[in-house]
């Protein structure tokens, strides 16, 4: 039997595939049977927060910051309650990270304020003198891509049933309406709390700087 397998490339390949796929079938597939269950009271990200998550991805904060507090006293003392599976139910993709060159951010919204973030993103050394994090000044002038974030909200609502209200609907008109009634007012609040006039002015002009969206996202991490 074995010798036959070794000389029949097709069945050999099938054999290899079965062997390597077996682990996947058992480890991965059953998890799709049950949907990720959100913890009680977990709300999906607002469009502004989704745009902030895109900034988080774009400038790749995940390279240095984790979002996973492990169940050790040393970690819960430092960052807060350990992470629960249900807290990530709306995270597509997950952003746990694999390296902590900087501290964990899973509950950063609990202990940092928008104006702290504003100072920190502009010049990290101004708040943490020994920081090796680079400044992200371009986030103060780049405009966040709200439309793509909105498209993402529509997609996850339609495809995965993420509980967004009826306002989140396909098409330009629905987006414009959401922008005026929800996204910009939310951004303005954040911009004001960041205590920088240039950011407030930009938002008032209808353009949300990347850093405002990012801080909206970081504020959600609690």
């Amino acid at each position: 039997m074995f010798h036959w397998l070794e000389k029949n490339p097709f069945f050999f390949a099938v054999g290899v595939f079965v062997v390597i796929a077996y682990a996947g079938v058992i480890e991965i597939l059953p998890n799709f049977a049950e949907k990720a269950r959100p913890v009680k009271g977990l709300k999906p990200y607002t469009v502004l927060q989704l745009a902030g998550k895109e900034v988080y991805k774009k400038d790749n904060c995940i390279a240095c910051h984790s979002q996973l507090i492990r169940p050790f006293k040393s970690e819960t003392d430092r960052y807060g309650h350990y992470s629960l599976s249900g807290e990530y139910a709306y995270d597509r993709p997950f952003l746990w990270g694999s390296k902590r060159t900087g501290p964990d951010l899973h509950r950063v919204g609990n202990y940092r304020t928008p104006d702290w973030h504003a100072n920190h993103m502009w010049n990290p050394k101004s708040v943490v003198p020994d920081s090796i994090m680079p400044a992200y000044k371009h986030q103060f002038t780049n405009v966040a891509d709200l439309e793509t974030a909105y498209a993402e909200a529509v997609t996850v609502k339609k495809v995965f049933g993420t509980p967004y209200g009826p306002d989140i609907a396909p098409g330009k008109a629905a987006y414009e309406k959401e922008l005026k009634t929800k996204i910009l007012p939310e951004a303005l609040k954040i911009a004001k709390r960041m205590k920088r006039d240039d950011l407030v002015k930009m938002v008032e002009a209808g353009k949300v700087p990347e850093v405002v969206a990012l801080v909206a996202y970081l504020e959600k991490l609690k």
Binding site: Y22, V25, I26, P30, A33, E34
Partner: peptide
């Protein structure tokens, strides 16, 4: 149920 799935998976694993 998820418990049954979990059990099935352990069985499949051990047998496999």
């Amino acid at each position: 149920t998820s418990v049954e799935i979990e059990q099935l998976r352990v069985y499949l694993y051990v047998i496999g």
